[in-house]
Design a binder for these strands. Structure first.
Lengths: 340, 340
DNA sequence: CTGTTAGCGCCTTCAT
DNA sequence: ATGAAGGCGCTAACAG
């Protein structure tokens, strides 16, 4: 391994001078800079991160914490996409990113502990938000820089987080359905303790209310995320005497399941049933019909969270922020107009 | 930050003793061990990785290199799943994993360079395999430990890699179609410079040959991975005078596109057309019909590669290995029997 | 069984 | 503008 000393020796200067050249210190003569740089290149010198981190007390690395992978939620294309978003920033800033790998909450907690106490990373991004989360609490207690993608379950104004306006997104997409003439609109969401679900549902309710459509509890269903593709939910809806004509589903991958079940039971989308969804991951354009869905800009969610985190690590008393990524409906073929 | 010295002072021993306690050195008296451990706990001591890495010349971290994300291939649920597989091992071995984040090949190359020269990681896993890959060449030249998930384009016997027997997988699944009475079987694969495609295709051909079915070039198609869901390929097949009765598609996500196009054009799977696929990612069970597909055990691909890599890093002259993960067909509803 | 010493590779005062 | 010296936190001989 080529060290700073080797370069120094080769150039006939002292190690500290080389160090200064690396840092591009202004009070090193252009001449020696050139010489040193050449030697570095010739010898194939590369700084050793660990040595550097040790004295700098910073790692230029951020930890990304995935939700516990008990369920299959990790197969949601959402994740690779946020990772790419995060990566786009870390790469540009020459940071590296470390992924959590635990399966259970306990395991993940231990990892985060290691990351924090062991100075593995300068900060972490939480890719989930759970009620009463030990990890969040721990991060707050230790005053370690972190940001949440999504909405914190608590301390909302003290935790930097990047999110969509899910209430509005839910309202917008529901309103669209209403504009298309639908009135009997159902809602299929994920677990009720997830803020995404709650907020999108509230948006759905608001749109219905504003349109003067009375609420129908039988139209509001919740299903374990990904559990057999929302089959039960769909069956329940279709067993109703007065069936809905449209459904709002809170996730594209879930929509795929809903779509399948619907068609399997003989209900053709969008003719017999309209369907709208959220996220706009790749598969929403290759399903049949292609899904009309809310583009939440997953990539941006990742990128902005990384950016905010890095700022936090650079300046510990940067105030907590709430960053809202705008959404946009992308219209495809899963909705039909109802003529009155 | 609590250091080893603090613990030493608090216990009245020397720093090296504390260090030995951490390493659980056998020739430290149980008594002092206990004392020291208590102090560590009381003070909240956690070893600093960077300091440790610096002297150990090992980082207990591995780098995972994703393919350049120019295309959307990263949205393939394949990736989260390998990551989980890798993570299951790194976690167990207390390793951490660093993800590449570059977009272009150039960017990724630079990252790998940093990882290698900067001692960021002890080894890397390549999640792709390209022809004439600079990164692979670089890793070989620098004699840096690495393993490939998939088949190396060159030096096959000198590079540790973990893969499926894609030839056999292709053959098995095609044979299954033949057993079900199909004779006009088409093949839709990804880019021809990917070994997965090539091998699975060779398997398909072998099965056809052995069954005495003459080859039909018009039945063999290649499509940009994920490009508009293989629409063109399907259209081409359906424009043929003698249409196939079955299709072998090399990836579940592609199958989703194929399926959609097929149905959209009025061909119902499996009645008008049978469809088999590869990978067995979650969505293959929620499509309609659910896909009969080859389970390639993605999780195992990841886990075994991590295991092999860690062995490599621990023992640099561990011989190169070729690890084949067995596959298995999972039968679902996308194939129908043809009575003669 | 435990302490002392040196050094991993780098950065940063403090001199000059 | 540059060098020398010390130290980041930890481990690994070498003593005893």
């Amino acid at each position: 391994m080529v060290t700073i000393k080797d370069v120094a020796k080769a150039t006939g200067v002292s190690p500290s001078t080389v160090s200064r050249v690396i840092a591009d210190n202004p009070r090193i003569s252009p001449d020696t800079k050139k010489k040193v740089r050449k030697a570095m290149k010739d010898l194939g010198y590369h700084p050793n991160v660990n040595a550097r981190n040790l004295v700098a007390k910073s790692t230029k690395a951020i930890g990304v914490i995935l939700p516990s992978s008990a369920d299959k939620s990790l197969q949601n294309p959402f994740f690779p996409e946020v990772l790419r978003g995060i990566g786009s920033i870390t790469h540009k800033m020459q940071y590296s990113m470390t992924l959590s790998s635990g399966d259970t909450e306990e395991e993940i907690f231990n990892e985060v502990e290691r990351m924090v106490y062991g100075s593995y990373v300068d900060g972490v991004i939480l890719l989930y938000s759970r009620v009463n989360d030990r990890i969040t609490d721990f991060l707050i207690e230790t005053n370690f820089p972190f940001v949440i993608v999504g909405k914190p379950y608590d301390n909302v104004s003290n935790i930097t987080h990047v999110d969509n306006d899910n209430f509005k997104a839910g309202k917008d997409i529901t309103s669209y359905l209403i504009e298309q003439g639908h009135e009997r609109i159902a809602f299929i969401g994920g677990a009720k303790d997830l803020f995404v679900t709650v907020d999108r549902e509230a948006g759905y309710e608001a749109a219905m209310r504003e349109a003067g459509i009375s609420e129908n509890p039988a139209y509001k269903l919740h299903t374990e995320f990904l559990k057999s593709g929302g089959r039960e939910a769909v069956e329940k809806l279709l067993s109703l005497d007065v069936k809905p004509t449209g459904v709002v589903v809170t996730d594209d991958l879930m929509s795929l399941g809903v779509l399948s079940t619907l068609e399997e039971l003989g209900f053709h989308v969008p003719f017999d049933m309209s369907l709208v969804s959220f996220n706009n991951v790749y598969l929403s354009e290759i399903t049949r019909p292609a899904l009309t869905t809310v583009d939440v800009q997953i990539h941006q969610l990742g990128a902005q969270s990384a950016k905010a985190l890095i700022e936090l690590t650079l300046n510990k008393d940067e105030p907590a922020k709430r960053i809202i990524i705008p959404h946009q409906i992308v219209y495809r073929d899963s909705v039909s107009k109802i003529e009155k």
